[in-house]
Amino acid sequence: MMTIRGLIWLALLFAVAVIVATVGGFNGGQILLVMPPYRVDVSLNLFVVVLVVLFIVLYSVLRALRVVWSMPGLIGACRKHSKQNKANSSLRDAIGHLYAGRFSKAEKAARDALIVDDNKGAASLVGASAAHQLHEYARRDEWLAQVSGNDWQDARLMATADMRADGRDADGALIALTEMQATGGKRIHAQQIALRAQQQLKNWGEVLKLVRMLEKREALHPAIAVRLRQVAAENLLRDRRHNPDALMEFWQSLSPTERQSPRLADLAAELLIALDRRAEAKKIVEDALAHNWDARLLRRYSDCIVGGDAFPLIQRAESWQKEHTEDADLLFTLGRLCLHQQLWGKAQAFLEQALKLADNERLKIRAHLTLARLFEQLGEADKAAEHYRASVLAMNVV
């Protein structure tokens, strides 16, 4: 099917033929060529035609010579183009195999893509990722060493950090991140990798710092962030378990949300009680309960008696009872506090009511044991034995 361009050329040829035929019909000129002893007499029209034919022939010959002369270069360019296409095809195959989980094929295709220098950076990163997935760490590092060029260095360092963190080489990951950050810029992915590395090294201070930074940038799932902050804070509290001042200083450095966490508040109170700092423990538990009503904090509250006087705690617990009338854990705590204060009747009433409302076996066991101790102190051995027996039966059920 003839193209538009072909039709235009055909129309031009017809126009030229018409013009030549028209002009040639009115031209009666002659050309005399004399070269002794020869003499040639031709019409002007024939002479013009011969000149045009000679020009076309000469042009064609020169063009053919030029093509022949440039043939080696054309062949070389063709081979280079073919090589480039083959390398690019191999690189595309390598990426496809990598994400399809065919890591051996991905590494082989990446090696084929290296025949072109322009593919060296990308192919080496793909090969390194494939080798890492195959747990061939020495070969992975060889691939990474082949990544050259300033444009690829950030990618190399980020990939190195990510793969080393994934391979539990936290120190290697942090070294790569430090080298990358020296060039400037704080990338979210770099902070995520650093978080994994610091977790592996149990650098809980850095973990807490990184979690807060990633939370601000909304780069961490809220549930994961809460869990990591909690684990980091717990470990940092335990690291200060022998120094009450350092423990309280760190506790105050936590955010209000973290201090209101029942789990963290319970741990902080437990550590302070062990250090005989019950007043601070009492305040921590009360503040946390004001925001999050929690059974473990209620149980811890009965251990926060300051100076052997449980009356202030009993009064505070009874004020809570106005809003939590049938809370078994609160009643159990009141029973323990009254038992400590030797308020036998109130202690028995609270504990028996807690036992009646208890909805889990563990609380029932604690209530039976506490009632057993109460009756022992009252000299009622039969009732004490009855509750001890009931606690043992409940333990067997659990």
Rank of each mutant, 00 (worst) to 15 (best):
A130G: 07
L46R: 08
P72H: 04
V68W: 08
D359M: 04
P262R: 07
H135D: 12
A194M: 06
W320T: 13
V397W: 06
G28N: 09
G6R: 05
I31R: 11
A349R: 01
L98C: 04
Q341A: 10
K108V: 06
E249T: 13
V397S: 01
V231Q: 11
R196I: 07
A165L: 06
I273V: 15
D309W: 11
M248A: 15
A77I: 05
H132D: 02
D151P: 03
S60T: 12
S70P: 00
M35K: 07
E352L: 11
L201K: 03
A11E: 10
Q153H: 06
I115W: 02
L343K: 05
A233T: 02
E142I: 10
T333P: 06
R263M: 11
I193L: 06
V61I: 13
Q199S: 09
R296Y: 14
S255F: 05
G345W: 01
E215S: 08
Q133M: 13
S70E: 07
L236Q: 09
M71R: 14
E280S: 12
G379N: 07
M395W: 08
V40A: 06
R212E: 03
T160I: 07
F332W: 14
E318S: 09
A87I: 00
A310G: 10
K209H: 14
K322F: 04
F250A: 00
N45V: 14
A64S: 15
A110L: 02
Q353H: 15
K364M: 07
L210N: 07
A109E: 06
Q30A: 11
Q30M: 14
A394V: 11
A269F: 03
W293V: 01
D41C: 01
D294Y: 12
H291T: 14
D151K: 10
T333E: 06
N243R: 03
Q348R: 12
L13N: 01
A100I: 04
I305S: 02
R187Y: 12
L343N: 11
V285F: 05
C304S: 13
R66C: 01
A233C: 15
A100N: 15
A317H: 00
A354Y: 01
V53L: 11
L393N: 15
A328P: 04
S104M: 07
A274I: 06
Q342G: 02
K105L: 09
D266M: 02
A87N: 00
L174C: 09
M213F: 08
M213Q: 10
G24T: 08
F350D: 01
H135T: 14
L355F: 10
L334R: 00
V49R: 02
L134P: 01
H189D: 13
M180I: 01
L44R: 10
W9T: 09
I284F: 13
C78G: 11
R111T: 15
L10N: 03
A131Q: 02
K282M: 15
V61H: 07
S124F: 09
Y388T: 10
Q200F: 02
C338T: 14
K383L: 07
S391E: 10
G28W: 08
